[in-house]
Computed example of a mutant assay.
Amino acid sequence: MTGPVLPPVTVDVLICTFRRPQVAETLRSVDAQRLPAGLGLRVVVMDNDGTGSGRVPVLTAARDMQIPVRYLRTGGGNISTARNALLDEAQSGWVAFLDDDEVASPHWLSSLWRCATATGADAVFGPVLSVYPPGTPDWIRQLDLHSSRPVRRAGVVETGIAGNVLLRCDDPRWSGERFDVGRGRTGGEDTEFFFRLHRLGARFEIADDADVHEPVSPDRLGFRWLARRRYRMGQSYAARASGRAERLRLGAGAAAKATACGGMTGLHALSRARRAAWALRAALHLGVVAGALSLPQRVSYGGDASGQDPDPGATTRPPAPARRGRGPDPG
């Protein structure tokens, strides 16, 4: 018995989910994509909760969708393990990653694809734009640090995040590369992964119009959460340094920048937004220092296979990057 006839090019949309019923809305936004002729989609959802909490919302949404959806389950609450299992399941030479709390605009995938074909890029990143709830402090809206926008450094895109990316995954130079399991509960696994692919020769581009939207939960609307996030982002950015000497240079430069940002924080003591902006920049640079020194990272995500939440005070030291991961259990 033969399967359905697929378009000439099919992109596998890969989504990890962990205890978020709103993954159903994410799936519906994928089903609503306006695609160019000859481009098709297939969705694979990996439930990262060993209890299978995502099964009902995923399969319920899939019943009303036009594009095929496959639900799989793995355990451990490690985002790298789940993403690696998704890569192992991919059947296409192109994959697109989305997070389970994001809603893609109708032109999301077509914009990523158009940029990839026009530029010959091996991966294209798009922006993740935050949707703030009523009552959000003005300074948070003004800074908009919850949103994630891909950036160029000296004209080059060196890395990005897995919340909005189209990736050519069949190039033999990096087809066997996988997300670092040691970073799968601390964060930054995607930043390090794309830094690694860039060093292997992958070329990246940005599609500013390939936007997805992510609601911000009330527990993230504070300076403390933002400071922790910026610090972790700094630790992740340190992955760009490939040797001891480079790490020391990066750490020394970041320490000087953190000191300068601390001084600017004091100079803007009367402005809530500017004071917060400089203090958060200082936190980012301090994170780079910590990453350059390979200090332990805070456990932020996931739980064990039984569904237990992580110890909020736990830390972990990332091991060497992984390659192929272990496959998932069928859902």
Rank of each mutant, 00 (worst) to 15 (best):
H198N: 11
R199E: 09
R199T: 11
L200F: 04
G201P: 00
G201I: 07
G201C: 10
G201M: 08
G201Q: 06
A202S: 08
A202P: 02
R203V: 12
D208V: 09
D208A: 15
D209I: 03
D209T: 13
D209R: 12
D209P: 05
A210K: 06
A210V: 09
D211E: 15
V212G: 03
V212D: 02
V212A: 04
V212T: 13
H213I: 00
H213G: 00
E214D: 11
P215C: 11
P215L: 09
V216K: 09
V216L: 07
S217Q: 14
P218R: 14
D219A: 10
D219V: 10
R220H: 12
L221F: 05
L221H: 07
G222H: 14
G222E: 09
G222Y: 05
G222R: 13
F223I: 10
R224A: 15
R224Y: 04
R224C: 00
W225F: 14
W225I: 00
W225K: 04
L226R: 11
L226V: 03
R228D: 10
R228T: 05
R229N: 08
Y231P: 01
Y231V: 01
R232C: 02
R232W: 02
M233H: 10
G234E: 04
Q235P: 03
Q235E: 08
Q235T: 06
Q235A: 02
S236H: 01
Y237F: 15
Y237I: 02
A238L: 05
A238I: 02
A239V: 00
R240Y: 13
A241L: 08
A241D: 01
A241Q: 06
A241Y: 07
S242R: 14
S242T: 15
G243Q: 10
R244D: 12
R244T: 14
A245L: 15
R247Q: 13
R247N: 01
L248M: 14
L248S: 13
R249Q: 13
R249K: 13
R249C: 12
L250G: 03
G251P: 02
G251D: 04
G251H: 07
A252R: 14
A252Y: 09
G253H: 07
G253V: 05
A254G: 01
A254V: 01
A255P: 02
A255N: 05
A255L: 14
A256N: 06
A256P: 04
K257P: 01
K257N: 05
A258D: 09
T259C: 11
T259K: 14
C261P: 00
G262F: 01
G263E: 11
T265S: 10
T265A: 12
T265V: 02
G266L: 12
G266W: 02
L267W: 07
H268C: 14
A269H: 10
S271V: 08
S271M: 08
S271D: 15
R272M: 10
A276H: 07
A276M: 07
A277D: 09
A277E: 06
W278F: 12
W278N: 06
W278E: 05
A279K: 05
A279E: 01
